[in-house]
Design a protein around this nucleic acid. Structure first.
Length: 492
RNA sequence: GCCCCCAUCGUCUAGAGGCCCAGGACGGCGGCCCUUCAAGCCGCAAGCAGGGGUUCGAAUCCCCUUGGGGGCACCA
């Protein structure tokens, strides 16, 4: 089924890609893999002012983390290299020359200050801000003179003053028509010699043989310009599809101010890439009326443009957390153990007093006890959940550690009896522990819950912990007895 | 101010005229399980923005209103 689908993800290196941005990359990737086509990475760095150091690396890192491998790109090369716009300047200049020659473009000498003043006037008069085309009327002599004088200039597109509406045949929205009268003469080449997005994007999609442009909805309003440009350059336009955008909780376009929006921050927050992948795929697309957890391969198999939703979606972090928990629980235990171990050994994990490296066998043993309780792999969360397995003594919120509703004396009696019962216990296993502790509660005539609660608090330092017998068994006799003695001394 | 897009539970969505007094999921609430906390299981509350048409029949088609969003740079 391999036709010649070629799609691209074309970010500009201005910072860490945020989740909305990456969702666009994901849909492109899915479509490429679904059709057996190519997924191209192209860097749109035509604005020198906004270039951000490290941004390129962040783009690579984001795509790699999510597992979106590209077939052609700056680092990989490909048949249409280079894949960085700042290295393709001659191409844009050629195109601009052609347009100038055929008189579908012209030089404009208006200064930024003039344009700014023009816009302000229009705004005040409640007019749409648009370039008034004053340089379009320049006589040839005048134009030549200014050119010779070396005045700063830009190249603008000569948008038809009238004519039929430009209609976009959008893959997700159907036909969208724009009157040419609402379009102005946009800039193609900036005074610094760099192209604008409009020019670069059209030239590159054409020269790179891109067949489908799947980009965010915010581009829809400038699409008629691109179509006009394709026409003027006699290029066949690619198929276009505008994807719904992702909104922040306040319903505005996702931006820095919405907390964790950078994809890589979610890695920091302990989100699994597979969970993020699944979650993002379902933000604006669905398989059917019920599927939530779906594998990468099924996604590739079933992805389709037809099932892309038209309306914008709000990023729902709660659901992502739930989904992450699902993926965490599906992880093979040894893999989960590696993640947990890494978090615990992190500088913000266990305190330095706990010797490293940690015993990986011990970590593996605690996995069954914590896997249902983890929502993320965030260092803080893992540490909070697991630290009592390692700290000697564990942290007690209040001293002495007596469960609320239980007299100190009663607690001491219960723990003394427990100590006595556990000291000689032969196999220190969950069932053996249960075998002595249940009868012990009866012998002390306290409720089992009460006794277990007291032991739990003494041994783990908390009121809520994994099942007691399993926990005791994993901790092992030495630790358990030492902790009991320690607490008894505090209660004594 | 002008242009464009969108509109089903709080959120993500299913629904392409009768299968829908609208299905799933997250979250919320309640219960079961139970030594606590989770996980798991069961249940409940919660929605077709409003108004006109079209039709035997409308969440689904058309129009208007309203609401939300996006765009209008020598940024992408």
């Amino acid at each position: 089924m391999s036709n010649h689908v070629r799609v691209r993800y074309a970010p500009s290196p201005t910072g860490d890609p945020h989740v909305g941005n990456i969702r666009t990359a994901l849909f492109n990737w899915l479509y490429a893999r679904h059709t057996g086509g190519a997924f191209i990475l192209r860097i749109e760095d035509t604005d020198q002012a906004r270039a951000t150091p490290g941004a390129l690396e962040a783009i690579y890192e984001s795509l790699r983390w999510l597992g979106l491998a590209w077939d052609e790109g700056p680092d990989k090369g490909g048949p249409h290299a280079p894949y960085v716009q700042s290295q393709r300047l001659p191409l844009y200049h050629q195109a601009a020359e052609r347009l100038l020659d055929q008189s579908t473009a012209y030089h404009c000498y208006c200064t930024p200050a003039e344009l700014e003043a023009m816009r302000r006037r229009q705004q005040e008069a409640k007019q749409p801000p648009r370039y008034d085309r004053r340089c379009r009327q320049l006589s040839e002599k005048e134009s030549k003179a200014r050119l010779a004088a070396g005045l700063p200039r830009v190249v603008r597109f000569k948008t038809p003053l009238e004519g039929p509406p430009v209609v976009v045949h959008d893959l997700v929205r159907g036909e969208v028509a724009f009157e040419v009268s609402v379009l102005d003469d946009f800039v193609l080449l900036k005074s610094d010699g760099f192209p604008t997005y409009h020019l670069a994007n059209v030239v590159d999609d054409h020269t790179m043989y891109v067949t489908h442009v799947l980009r965010a909805e915010e581009w829809l309003p400038s699409t008629p310009r691109h179509l006009l440009l394709y026409q003027a350059l006699s290029y066949d336009p690619p198929l276009l599809g505008h994807l719904p955008i992702i909104l922040g909780p306040d319903r505005s376009k996702l931006s820095k101010r919405h907390g964790a929006t950078s994809l890589l921050e979610y890695r920091q927050e302990g989100i699994l890439p597979d969970a993020m992948f699944n979650f993002l795929a379902l933000l604006g697309w669905s398989l059917d009326e019920k599927t939530e957890i779906i594998s990468r391969s099924d996604l590739v198999r079933h992805f389709s443009l037809e099932r892309i939703v038209k309306s914008a979606a709000i990023f729902n972090g709660e659901k992502l957390l739930w989904m992450n928990g699902m993926y965490l629980r599906q992880l093979p235990p040894d893999e989960l153990a590696r993640h947990v171990l890494a978090a615990l050994e992190d500088a913000n994990g266990l305190p330095p007093s706990v010797t490293r490296p940690l015993d990986s066998k011990y970590v593996e043993a605690i996995i069954p006890l914590v896997r249902d309780r983890l929502k993320t792999l965030k260092v803080d969360e893992v540490r909070d959940l697991c630290s009592f397995f390692f700290l000697e003594p564990p942290h007690y919120d209040v001293l002495p550690p007596a469960p609320k509703g239980m007299e100190k004396a009663a607690a001491r009696r219960a723990l003394e009896a427990t100590l006595g019962a556990l000291e000689p216990l032969a196999p220190f296993t969950p069932s053996a522990l249960e075998g002595v502790l249940r009868p012990l509660a009866e012998r002390l005539s306290v409720k089992t819950g009460e006794l277990f609660g007291a032991i739990r608090l003494a041994v783990t330092g908390r009121a809520a912990a994994p099942p007691l017998f399993d926990t005791l068994a994993v901790l092992g006799r030495e630790r358990v007895l030492a902790r009991l003695r320690h607490v008894l001394s505090l209660l004594g």
